[in-house]
């Protein structure tokens, strides 16, 4: 017996997809917030970590921040295109955002290689344990973001589910905001 399908209702002014993403970002804030809080506590306990932080590649961190900020811009342009119904442009912009993510990961891989070859592995000291924990967890989120961006770009190209462009853009901005705090915490405090 097929029940009469009640109309898709939205009780608040915020579309259902976006309500879900905001709650998802809230739980992510709690996870990253918890990890960053532990790092900040230990930075306060061991002021001498500043000279260990000096061994991070400051220019790489700065460049990566610029890359993520730029890819946030392309994410917004993708969202604006989706709002205007320009499916192809939205999909195109999402791909540029994903490219930004890949550049970010490439720079990260270079950084890790440089640091590991210099013996700065997670077990080297507690600062480096936190460095790999925070940047590693962030890099995982960037990777997941790239996959999501490409998936939504593919479906957006056919004009399907343009609403998802905004949702994946929201997630990408969150990943950018996390890096905005990780950069000064890990790199600049030298």
């Amino acid at each position: 017996m097929q029940a009469h399908a009640t109309v898709a209702r939205e009780s608040t002014s915020v579309p259902t997809g976006r309500v879900g993403v905001w709650w998802f970002l809230a739980s992510e804030i709690a996870i990253f917030g918890g990890a960053v809080a532990c790092y900040v506590l230990f930075r306060a306990r061991y002021p001498d970590w500043a000279d260990q932080a000096a061994r991070t590649l400051g220019w790489a961190g700065a460049f990566n921040t610029a890359v993520l900020l730029t890819s946030s811009l392309s994410a917004v342009l993708a969202h604006h295109a989706a709002v205007r119904g320009e499916a192809v442009r939205a999909s195109h912009m999402l791909r540029w955002t994903a490219v930004g993510g890949l550049v970010f990961l490439a720079v990260k891989v270079y950084e890790y290689a440089h640091e590991i070859s210099a013996g700065l592995v997670p077990a080297q000291s507690l600062f480096w344990s936190f460095y790999y924990l925070l940047t590693g967890l962030h890099a995982l989120h960037v990777t997941a973001g790239i996959v999501a961006l490409l998936a939504v770009a593919a479906s957006a190209r056919r004009g399907h589910a343009l609403g998802r462009v905004e949702l994946v853009a929201l997630y990408w901005h969150f990943v950018d905001v996390v890096w905005i705090f990780l950069f000064p915490l890990l790199y600049l405090s030298s």
Binding site: S27, E28, A30, F32, G34, L133
Partner: peptide
């Protein structure tokens, strides 16, 4: 639940890192 579990997820990652990657959290 959602807001209180976040820090423990980070804590669990640190626990696993201590067990396998020789970190000292």
């Amino acid at each position: 639940f959602m807001l209180s579990v976040g820090p423990l997820i980070a804590g669990a990652l640190m626990l696993l890192a201590d067990r396998h990657f020789g970190t000292g959290f």
